[in-house]
């Protein structure tokens, strides 16, 4: 008997031992939405929750420009389809590349990619493989800017689960990469971005 058969045989025997198997409960999904967090479920709520998770909410082009200036960013990853949107807001002398070169991973100060949605309740950005041509470009640079359409805001986690895109890899990012492994002290930018920013596209 192979391991699969062994496991299924043992499982059937174990499961049969319970006289009254538990029923699958109906889920009152509405109760799984945190009202204080979601609020009206609009962009103001997204912003509040995103900033509470230490995200950088960029209210417009000037905010993007000052973020890049403040961080002294010179080189960034930006897929071709976002170039025209982003270029007008770049400080002088900042270069965009549409290919993320693995050999120069530390050269890239920022990465700009599309988020398919945002979740208001938790201040979360939803990234997919289909809209993030290179996962590394959204992860390796110190700054990640997610560009999300104004119409793509989902009010709650419950709804976001129901709307999970048909994509082999969907990732929800809620603020910058962080750890509290050393003595419980919060440090941001462990492996992923130390600055997670959101740029809303009207």
């Amino acid at each position: 008997m192979n391991d699969r058969d062994k496991i299924f045989t043992a499982l059937r025997a174990a499961v049969a031992k319970k006289e009254k198997p538990a029923d699958l409960p109906e889920l009152p999904l509405d109760d799984f939405i945190s009202r204080p967090r979601r609020g009206a479920g609009d962009w103001a709520d997204f912003r509040r929750n995103f900033e509470a998770a230490n995200g950088d909410f960029l209210a417009g082009g000037p905010d993007l420009r000052s973020l890049l200036e403040r961080e002294g960013a010179k080189l960034g990853y930006c897929p071709e389809d976002l170039r025209d949107i982003i270029s007008p807001h770049l400080p002088e002398g900042v270069e965009l590349r549409s290919e993320f070169n693995r050999d120069e991973i530390d050269e890239f100060a920022f990465g700009i990619t599309r988020a398919s949605h945002a979740i208001a309740e938790t201040g979360t950005l939803v990234l997919t493989d289909q809209e993030t041509p290179d996962r590394l470009g959204a992860l390796a640079p110190w700054i990640h800017v997610a560009v999300v359409g104004e119409g793509n805001l989902i009010p709650s986690v419950v709804q976001a689960i129901q709307m999970l895109p048909a994509d082999p890899n969907v990732i929800w990012a809620t603020g910058p990469s962080k750890t509290a492994d050393v003595e419980g002290i919060l440090i941001e930018g462990v492996h992923g971005p130390g600055i997670e920013a959101c740029f809303v596209l009207s």
Partner: peptide, 30 residues
């Protein structure tokens, strides 16, 4: 409220994606 990265994986990388695994193996352990 949510861990920073919550990842939903249903297969190898999307066609056309630059990075990401070409093979996805799930080992169910008893």
């Amino acid at each position: 409220a949510l861990t920073v990265y919550t990842e939903f994986i249903s297969g190898p990388k999307a066609a056309g994606a630059v990075s990401g695994p070409e093979e996805f193996h799930v080992v169910f352990v008893n």
